[in-house]
Simulated scan of single mutants.
Amino acid sequence: MPTVHPNYIKASKIVLLQLVIALVNFFLYYNDMHARHKNYAPIAMIVVFGIVIYLLRIGINWVKYFFLVGFAFVNGKPANWAAMFTHGPLKIIWAITGMCISIWVLWLLFTIPNQQASNKKSPDYPGPGIV
């Protein structure tokens, strides 16, 4: 079994922390949500975060791009920023904490060296075609 880079393990633990923060945020502002979102939103959060955590834990490389697109989609909309500032300072603190955690996870995931690049720089790797 190939070894998983330690940054994947750290990132999966941090995403678990982010899930806890998202669920706390959800239940703090439960009354502000529309009735159609109240039933499936926490289940969807747990399922999506659980899949991402599992894929990070086993070291799947493309998850970092999925996480980057999700981060840009959620935090890139001006409507989300406007809605965040209408709920008071606690909502702002929770949102900024979640963004900082996401940036931390992205930094961990994108600082993992590429496998081929790390093999070519290794002194034990003689290069292609050399026996």
Rank of each mutant, 00 (worst) to 15 (best):
K10M: 09
L16W: 11
L55V: 09
R57S: 08
L68C: 08
I93W: 07
K38V: 06
A83G: 15
V15L: 15
N31V: 02
V20E: 00
I51K: 06
A35P: 10
L68P: 01
I93P: 00
G50N: 06
Q115A: 09
S118H: 13
Q116D: 10
G127Q: 08
L56S: 02
G50K: 04
K38S: 11
V63Y: 01
K13C: 09
I53V: 07
A35I: 12
S122M: 07
G76E: 02
I92C: 01
V74A: 12
P128T: 14
P128R: 11
Q115F: 11
A22F: 02
P123W: 06
T86S: 15
L17Y: 05
L109T: 00
V48A: 06
H5A: 06
Q116V: 13
G88Y: 09
V24F: 02
M99S: 06
P126H: 04
A44R: 10
R36W: 12
P6I: 05
I21A: 10
P42F: 06
M99D: 07
F49N: 10
N75S: 13
Y29F: 15
H37S: 13
G129Y: 07
W62T: 10
S102P: 05
V74C: 04
I53M: 09
A95L: 04
L106P: 01
V4P: 02
I51C: 10
Y30H: 09
K77P: 05
L16D: 06
I53R: 03
D32Y: 09
V105R: 04
F27K: 03
I101S: 08
T3R: 12
P128F: 11
P113G: 05
I14W: 06
T111A: 07
R57F: 10
I112C: 00
G76V: 02
L23E: 12
P128A: 11
M45F: 14
N39Q: 14
A117F: 13
Y40N: 13
S12V: 08
M33I: 12
A11V: 00
L28M: 13
Y30E: 04
F110D: 03
W94M: 11
W107I: 15
L28G: 03
K10V: 03
F110W: 12
Y29W: 12
V15G: 00
I46M: 13
Y54L: 15
A44S: 14
P42L: 05
I101C: 06
L68W: 02
Y54H: 13
S12F: 01
H37V: 10
G127R: 03
T86I: 06
F27W: 14
L90V: 15
N25P: 07
V24S: 08
M33E: 12
M1K: 12
L68R: 04
T97P: 00
